[in-house]
Design a protein around this nucleic acid. Structure first.
Lengths: 130, 130
DNA sequence: GTAGAGGTTCCAGTGCGCTGGAAGGTCAAG
DNA sequence: CTTGACCTTCCAGCGCACTGGAACCTCTAC
Protein backbone atom coordinates (compact mmCIF):
# COMPACT_ATOMS: atom_id res chain seq x y z
CA UNK A 1 0.00 0.00 0.00
CA UNK A 2 2.65 2.43 1.10
CA UNK A 3 4.92 0.93 -1.48
CA UNK A 4 2.46 1.34 -4.33
CA UNK A 5 1.81 4.90 -3.23
CA UNK A 6 5.50 5.72 -3.34
CA UNK A 7 6.07 3.85 -6.57
CA UNK A 8 8.48 1.33 -5.16
CA UNK A 9 8.11 -2.34 -4.40
CA UNK A 10 7.00 -3.74 -1.08
CA UNK A 11 10.21 -5.71 -1.04
CA UNK A 12 12.18 -2.51 -1.19
CA UNK A 13 10.21 -0.94 1.63
CA UNK A 14 10.97 -3.95 3.82
CA UNK A 15 14.57 -3.75 2.75
CA UNK A 16 14.69 -0.09 3.82
CA UNK A 17 13.26 -1.03 7.19
CA UNK A 18 15.85 -3.76 7.57
CA UNK A 19 18.56 -1.31 6.53
CA UNK A 20 17.54 1.20 9.18
CA UNK A 21 16.12 3.83 6.83
CA UNK A 22 12.54 3.37 7.89
CA UNK A 23 11.49 2.83 11.50
CA UNK A 24 9.60 -0.39 12.13
CA UNK A 25 5.92 0.57 11.88
CA UNK A 26 3.17 -0.59 14.21
CA UNK A 27 1.33 -3.74 13.15
CA UNK A 28 -2.33 -4.56 12.72
CA UNK A 29 -3.76 -7.36 14.80
CA UNK A 30 -2.99 -9.68 11.91
CA UNK A 31 0.66 -8.67 11.90
CA UNK A 32 0.49 -6.47 8.80
CA UNK A 33 2.65 -3.35 8.74
CA UNK A 34 0.54 -0.26 9.35
CA UNK A 35 2.42 2.82 8.18
CA UNK A 36 1.74 6.30 9.49
CA UNK A 37 1.32 9.00 6.87
CA UNK A 38 4.78 10.37 7.54
CA UNK A 39 6.28 7.22 6.08
CA UNK A 40 5.37 8.30 2.55
CA UNK A 41 7.21 11.59 3.02
CA UNK A 42 10.19 9.70 4.30
CA UNK A 43 10.21 7.48 1.24
CA UNK A 44 9.95 10.59 -0.86
CA UNK A 45 12.98 12.00 0.87
CA UNK A 46 14.89 8.79 0.27
CA UNK A 47 14.01 9.00 -3.41
CA UNK A 48 15.12 12.61 -3.65
CA UNK A 49 18.36 11.92 -1.84
CA UNK A 50 19.06 8.97 -4.10
CA UNK A 51 18.45 11.14 -7.11
CA UNK A 52 21.04 13.50 -5.71
CA UNK A 53 23.44 10.57 -5.70
CA UNK A 54 23.60 9.86 -1.98
CA UNK A 55 24.08 6.27 -0.97
CA UNK A 56 21.66 4.57 1.36
CA UNK A 57 24.31 4.71 4.08
CA UNK A 58 24.59 8.48 3.69
CA UNK A 59 20.85 8.85 3.62
CA UNK A 60 20.64 6.82 6.79
CA UNK A 61 23.06 9.27 8.36
CA UNK A 62 21.00 12.27 7.36
CA UNK A 63 17.82 10.66 8.64
CA UNK A 64 19.50 9.78 11.92
CA UNK A 65 20.39 13.44 12.46
CA UNK A 66 16.86 14.45 11.68
CA UNK A 67 15.44 11.77 13.96
CA UNK A 68 17.74 13.06 16.62
CA UNK A 69 15.93 16.38 16.44
CA UNK A 70 18.69 18.34 14.72
CA UNK A 71 18.72 20.06 11.36
CA UNK A 72 20.88 18.04 8.96
CA UNK A 73 21.56 21.02 6.69
CA UNK A 74 25.27 21.26 7.33
CA UNK A 75 25.77 17.57 6.86
CA UNK A 76 23.67 17.56 3.73
CA UNK A 77 25.57 20.50 2.34
CA UNK A 78 28.84 18.65 2.80
CA UNK A 79 27.49 15.50 1.20
CA UNK A 80 26.20 17.40 -1.78
CA UNK A 81 29.49 19.17 -2.32
CA UNK A 82 31.35 15.89 -2.04
CA UNK A 83 29.09 14.30 -4.59
CA UNK A 84 29.40 17.22 -6.88
CA UNK A 85 33.18 16.88 -6.74
CA UNK A 86 32.96 13.16 -7.36
CA UNK A 87 30.65 13.61 -10.31
CA UNK A 88 32.86 16.23 -11.86
CA UNK A 89 35.82 13.95 -11.54
CA UNK A 90 33.86 11.10 -13.04
CA UNK A 91 32.82 13.35 -15.89
CA UNK A 92 36.44 14.16 -16.58
CA UNK A 93 37.34 10.47 -16.57
CA UNK A 94 34.52 9.58 -18.87
CA UNK A 95 35.42 12.38 -21.19
CA UNK A 96 38.92 10.96 -21.44
CA UNK A 97 37.50 7.50 -22.04
CA UNK A 98 35.31 8.93 -24.76
CA UNK A 99 38.28 10.46 -26.52
CA UNK A 100 40.18 7.20 -26.37
CA UNK A 101 37.20 5.24 -27.63
CA UNK A 102 36.64 7.65 -30.49
CA UNK A 103 40.21 7.13 -31.55
CA UNK A 104 39.75 3.39 -31.30
CA UNK A 105 36.53 3.52 -33.24
CA UNK A 106 38.23 5.51 -35.97
CA UNK A 107 41.01 2.95 -36.09
CA UNK A 108 38.52 0.11 -36.02
CA UNK A 109 36.56 1.35 -38.98
CA UNK A 110 39.67 1.79 -41.04
CA UNK A 111 41.14 -1.59 -40.18
CA UNK A 112 41.20 -4.40 -42.68
CA UNK A 113 40.71 -7.76 -40.93
CA UNK A 114 43.25 -9.18 -43.32
CA UNK A 115 45.88 -7.09 -41.58
CA UNK A 116 44.97 -8.58 -38.21
CA UNK A 117 47.18 -11.58 -38.31
CA UNK A 118 50.02 -10.50 -36.08
CA UNK A 119 51.04 -11.84 -32.75
CA UNK A 120 48.86 -9.51 -30.79
CA UNK A 121 45.27 -10.25 -30.09
CA UNK A 122 43.91 -7.04 -31.56
CA UNK A 123 45.70 -3.96 -32.75
CA UNK A 124 42.63 -1.77 -32.47
CA UNK A 125 42.50 -1.99 -28.71
CA UNK A 126 46.20 -1.55 -28.18
CA UNK A 127 46.90 1.58 -26.20
CA UNK A 128 49.85 3.96 -26.47
CA UNK A 129 52.20 1.38 -24.96
CA UNK A 130 50.72 -1.56 -26.87
CA UNK B 1 56.40 -13.54 -11.67
CA UNK B 2 54.09 -13.07 -14.62
CA UNK B 3 51.84 -11.07 -12.37
CA UNK B 4 54.58 -8.74 -11.18
CA UNK B 5 55.71 -8.28 -14.77
CA UNK B 6 52.23 -7.27 -15.85
CA UNK B 7 51.65 -5.14 -12.79
CA UNK B 8 48.72 -7.08 -11.45
CA UNK B 9 48.38 -9.41 -8.51
CA UNK B 10 48.96 -13.13 -8.65
CA UNK B 11 45.47 -13.55 -7.30
CA UNK B 12 44.09 -11.71 -10.27
CA UNK B 13 46.05 -13.82 -12.71
CA UNK B 14 44.62 -16.94 -11.13
CA UNK B 15 41.20 -15.37 -11.22
CA UNK B 16 41.61 -14.72 -14.95
CA UNK B 17 42.55 -18.31 -15.50
CA UNK B 18 39.51 -19.44 -13.54
CA UNK B 19 37.36 -17.04 -15.54
CA UNK B 20 38.55 -18.46 -18.85
CA UNK B 21 40.59 -15.46 -19.96
CA UNK B 22 43.95 -17.15 -19.64
CA UNK B 23 44.57 -20.74 -20.68
CA UNK B 24 45.84 -22.98 -17.89
CA UNK B 25 49.63 -22.92 -18.24
CA UNK B 26 51.92 -25.93 -17.96
CA UNK B 27 53.29 -26.64 -14.50
CA UNK B 28 56.79 -27.14 -13.20
CA UNK B 29 57.54 -30.42 -11.48
CA UNK B 30 56.68 -28.70 -8.21
CA UNK B 31 53.26 -27.70 -9.48
CA UNK B 32 54.06 -24.03 -10.03
CA UNK B 33 52.47 -22.31 -13.01
CA UNK B 34 55.00 -21.86 -15.78
CA UNK B 35 53.78 -19.20 -18.17
CA UNK B 36 54.91 -18.94 -21.78
CA UNK B 37 56.00 -15.50 -22.94
CA UNK B 38 52.78 -14.97 -24.82
CA UNK B 39 50.92 -14.82 -21.54
CA UNK B 40 52.29 -11.37 -20.78
CA UNK B 41 50.98 -10.07 -24.10
CA UNK B 42 47.64 -11.57 -23.33
CA UNK B 43 47.51 -9.83 -19.99
CA UNK B 44 48.46 -6.64 -21.76
CA UNK B 45 45.57 -7.09 -24.12
CA UNK B 46 43.21 -7.67 -21.22
CA UNK B 47 44.42 -4.45 -19.64
CA UNK B 48 43.98 -2.50 -22.86
CA UNK B 49 40.53 -3.91 -23.41
CA UNK B 50 39.53 -3.08 -19.84
CA UNK B 51 40.78 0.45 -20.33
CA UNK B 52 38.51 0.63 -23.34
CA UNK B 53 35.66 -0.29 -21.04
CA UNK B 54 35.06 -3.87 -22.11
CA UNK B 55 33.88 -6.25 -19.41
CA UNK B 56 35.77 -9.44 -18.72
CA UNK B 57 32.94 -11.37 -20.37
CA UNK B 58 33.35 -9.35 -23.54
CA UNK B 59 37.10 -9.70 -23.44
CA UNK B 60 36.68 -13.43 -23.07
CA UNK B 61 34.55 -13.37 -26.21
CA UNK B 62 37.19 -11.50 -28.20
CA UNK B 63 39.92 -13.82 -26.99
CA UNK B 64 37.83 -16.85 -27.90
CA UNK B 65 37.51 -15.60 -31.47
CA UNK B 66 41.23 -15.01 -31.62
CA UNK B 67 41.97 -18.40 -30.13
CA UNK B 68 39.68 -19.85 -32.72
CA UNK B 69 42.04 -18.53 -35.38
CA UNK B 70 39.79 -15.74 -36.64
CA UNK B 71 40.37 -11.99 -36.66
CA UNK B 72 38.11 -10.42 -34.03
CA UNK B 73 38.14 -6.99 -35.69
CA UNK B 74 34.48 -6.88 -36.60
CA UNK B 75 33.42 -7.99 -33.19
CA UNK B 76 35.78 -5.55 -31.51
CA UNK B 77 34.53 -2.72 -33.69
CA UNK B 78 30.97 -3.40 -32.61
CA UNK B 79 31.93 -3.58 -28.96
CA UNK B 80 33.79 -0.30 -29.15
CA UNK B 81 30.93 1.47 -30.81
CA UNK B 82 28.52 0.08 -28.24
CA UNK B 83 30.70 1.29 -25.42
CA UNK B 84 31.14 4.65 -26.99
CA UNK B 85 27.38 5.01 -27.15
CA UNK B 86 27.03 3.90 -23.55
CA UNK B 87 29.66 6.32 -22.37
CA UNK B 88 28.09 9.19 -24.20
CA UNK B 89 24.77 8.41 -22.63
CA UNK B 90 26.37 8.16 -19.22
CA UNK B 91 28.06 11.50 -19.80
CA UNK B 92 24.72 13.06 -20.58
CA UNK B 93 23.22 11.58 -17.43
CA UNK B 94 26.07 12.78 -15.29
CA UNK B 95 25.88 16.20 -16.80
CA UNK B 96 22.25 16.38 -15.78
CA UNK B 97 23.12 15.17 -12.32
CA UNK B 98 25.78 17.84 -12.12
CA UNK B 99 23.31 20.54 -12.98
CA UNK B 100 20.88 19.30 -10.36
CA UNK B 101 23.62 19.07 -7.75
CA UNK B 102 24.85 22.55 -8.51
CA UNK B 103 21.38 23.86 -7.94
CA UNK B 104 21.19 21.91 -4.69
CA UNK B 105 24.57 23.16 -3.61
CA UNK B 106 23.53 26.71 -4.28
CA UNK B 107 20.39 26.16 -2.24
CA UNK B 108 22.38 24.44 0.49
CA UNK B 109 24.81 27.28 0.94
CA UNK B 110 22.05 29.82 1.17
CA UNK B 111 19.96 27.85 3.63
CA UNK B 112 19.73 28.84 7.23
CA UNK B 113 19.46 25.77 9.47
CA UNK B 114 17.02 27.68 11.58
CA UNK B 115 14.59 27.50 8.69
CA UNK B 116 14.87 23.71 8.56
CA UNK B 117 12.25 22.85 11.08
CA UNK B 118 9.39 21.86 8.85
CA UNK B 119 7.83 18.47 8.43
CA UNK B 120 10.15 17.40 5.69
CA UNK B 121 13.51 15.85 6.36
CA UNK B 122 15.47 18.32 4.30
CA UNK B 123 14.32 21.01 1.94
CA UNK B 124 17.66 21.20 0.15
CA UNK B 125 17.34 17.76 -1.35
CA UNK B 126 13.71 18.11 -2.30
CA UNK B 127 13.27 17.84 -6.03
CA UNK B 128 10.80 19.64 -8.28
CA UNK B 129 7.93 17.57 -6.89
CA UNK B 130 9.07 17.70 -3.29
C1' DG C 1 68.87 -25.87 9.56
C1' DT C 2 65.99 -22.20 9.28
C1' DA C 3 63.79 -18.06 7.99
C1' DG C 4 61.17 -15.75 4.67
C1' DA C 5 59.23 -14.97 0.36
C1' DG C 6 57.04 -16.85 -2.79
C1' DG C 7 53.91 -20.59 -4.71
C1' DT C 8 49.53 -24.02 -4.34
C1' DT C 9 44.40 -25.15 -3.20
C1' DC C 10 39.79 -23.96 -1.67
C1' DC C 11 36.18 -21.18 0.09
C1' DA C 12 34.16 -16.93 1.24
C1' DG C 13 33.57 -12.06 1.30
C1' DT C 14 33.60 -7.27 -0.60
C1' DG C 15 30.10 -3.15 -2.10
C1' DC C 16 25.56 -1.64 -3.53
C1' DG C 17 20.67 -1.82 -3.82
C1' DC C 18 17.78 -4.44 -4.28
C1' DT C 19 15.19 -8.91 -6.12
C1' DG C 20 13.47 -13.72 -6.15
C1' DG C 21 11.51 -17.63 -4.16
C1' DA C 22 9.49 -20.82 -0.70
C1' DA C 23 6.16 -21.63 2.79
C1' DG C 24 2.67 -20.00 5.13
C1' DG C 25 -1.18 -16.44 6.97
C1' DT C 26 -5.06 -13.07 5.94
C1' DC C 27 -8.46 -10.55 3.62
C1' DA C 28 -12.23 -9.04 0.25
C1' DA C 29 -15.07 -10.54 -3.46
C1' DG C 30 -17.98 -13.79 -5.69
C1' DC D 1 -16.37 -22.05 0.39
C1' DT D 2 -13.10 -20.97 -2.83
C1' DT D 3 -10.20 -18.12 -5.45
C1' DG D 4 -6.75 -14.86 -5.85
C1' DA D 5 -4.27 -11.05 -4.31
C1' DC D 6 -2.01 -9.50 -0.92
C1' DC D 7 0.69 -9.94 3.53
C1' DT D 8 4.29 -12.31 6.69
C1' DT D 9 9.08 -14.57 7.53
C1' DC D 10 13.54 -16.20 6.10
C1' DC D 11 17.27 -17.13 3.15
C1' DA D 12 19.72 -16.69 -1.25
C1' DG D 13 21.37 -14.50 -5.25
C1' DC D 14 22.32 -10.90 -8.66
C1' DG D 15 26.43 -8.40 -11.27
C1' DC D 16 31.25 -7.22 -11.44
C1' DA D 17 36.11 -7.77 -10.71
C1' DC D 18 38.50 -8.98 -7.68
C1' DT D 19 40.45 -9.76 -2.70
C1' DG D 20 41.34 -12.08 1.76
C1' DG D 21 42.44 -15.86 4.54
C1' DA D 22 43.56 -20.63 6.00
C1' DA D 23 46.47 -24.40 5.47
C1' DC D 24 49.91 -26.23 3.16
C1' DC D 25 54.20 -26.70 -0.12
C1' DT D 26 58.68 -25.15 -2.38
C1' DC D 27 62.50 -22.58 -3.34
C1' DT D 28 66.46 -19.44 -2.18
C1' DA D 29 69.75 -17.32 0.89
C1' DC D 30 72.18 -17.31 4.87
Amino acid sequence: MLAAQAGISAKTVRFYEEAGLLPAPPRTSAGYRDYPEAAAARLGFIRDAQTAGLTLAEIRGVLAIRDNGQAPCGHVTDLIDEHLARIEQRLAELDQARQALREMSRRAHSTDPADCTGEQVCSILAGPAG
